[in-house]
Amino acid sequence: MTDTEITNRFVIEVSQVGTVDHIVDLEADSADRSPYAPRRDLPGEKLCDRSTRSPASEYIKLRDYADWKGFDKTAFEGDAPDEVCSYCWTEVLEEIEQVEQHERDDVDERIGTVGYRLRWKQKGRAREEWYDIVVRPETTMAELDSLVCRFTTLDDLHLRMYGLKDEYIDSTLNVIPDHQFTKVRDPSYTEASEMTIADVAGRTTLWDGDRLSMVYDFGTPSHYYCIVKEVYDADEIEKLLEEREPIAATETAAIIDEKRP
């Protein structure tokens, strides 16, 4: 990622709210575009959840912001200046590091052809219980959902929906189980059987350390998420499943490990 690409992508959001200014990723799909969000027209996505966004905010490149505030920080490196949210700043540094790592590992060339070990947890109970699900590129979200529900014992009384990292109810994927899709009949949702892991990976460049999310019950939500613990080429998946006896399996995916209370 070049310096120009970085400064064009990450901008300072200047508003009258709070004591520091925050950073917006202009290339990210805005969570505010969700039908459940109060504002849907703000550009990009703010990199932390420690303040509200205002339609009156201005968006300034770091160099211009530094000239205005009178400090010499003209690149996203080191510690955040006092005027900028340190949480947002850290997110930028992590994103830059991840992009550089992806370039070194030829991730763009491999996305859509690899499988993953997804460690699923419930938010608030992550240390007590988790389940590792191995998925192939062709695994559908419907198959993944069937294994997630096997260990969470979630019923179908309320909607559940899958999304990208920490999206939950603000999901940009809007993936719901097929039988719930037929009841809702809302074209903004996607049937789980119509989206594969390869499709999801292509949307978010899914790789080691990344996350997916799931929310159950939109009224009083429970939050579940997974972390990508391993990335596997096709032959590695087959070898792994030959060596391990699955706890539960579908045609293309399997629960291979667990921690239970």
Rank of each mutant, 00 (worst) to 15 (best):
R260Q: 09
A254I: 02
C48Y: 01
K165H: 03
M195S: 00
E13W: 03
P261G: 08
R63K: 14
C85I: 02
G70V: 08
E194G: 09
G115R: 02
Y224N: 10
A126N: 09
S171F: 03
T153W: 12
V215Q: 07
D32C: 11
V114L: 11
H179E: 14
K121M: 15
L42T: 06
T2W: 04
M195I: 10
Q16H: 12
A142P: 03
Y216P: 08
D257Y: 10
K121Y: 08
R9A: 03
T196E: 04
L42N: 07
V175C: 11
I6F: 04
G70S: 03
H179R: 15
V20F: 05
M195Y: 06
Y225G: 08
K239M: 11
E167F: 05
V175K: 01
V231P: 10
D72F: 00
S193I: 00
Y216F: 14
L241H: 14
F76Q: 07
V20S: 06
L47V: 09
I237H: 06
R125P: 00
S222N: 11
R136N: 05
E83L: 00
I247C: 10
I176Y: 00
I111Q: 07
D217S: 05
W207G: 13
P177F: 00
P81T: 01
E128L: 07
V24M: 11
R53Y: 06
A126S: 14
P246V: 03
D257R: 14
A201H: 04
G18E: 06
L173E: 05
L173N: 05
F76W: 11
K46M: 14
E242M: 13
L240N: 01
I133E: 02
E94T: 03
R119F: 00
E230P: 12
R136W: 04
D67P: 04
P38I: 10
D170A: 03
I96Q: 01
L144K: 09
K239S: 15
R117N: 13
T113H: 14
E97T: 00
R117L: 11
S34M: 05
P137C: 07
V14G: 04
K61N: 12
P81N: 07
E13A: 10
P261R: 12
A56R: 15
S171R: 09
W130L: 12
F76C: 02
E238W: 12
L212F: 03
S222P: 00
D155W: 04
Q180E: 11
T220L: 15
L93N: 07
E138F: 02
E97Y: 01
T205M: 15
A192C: 13
K165I: 02
A75Q: 15
H158A: 13
L240P: 05
P43Q: 03
Q122R: 15
L173Y: 08
G219T: 08
D210Y: 10
V11Y: 04
P177C: 01
Y225T: 09
T182V: 14
L62G: 02
T74R: 15
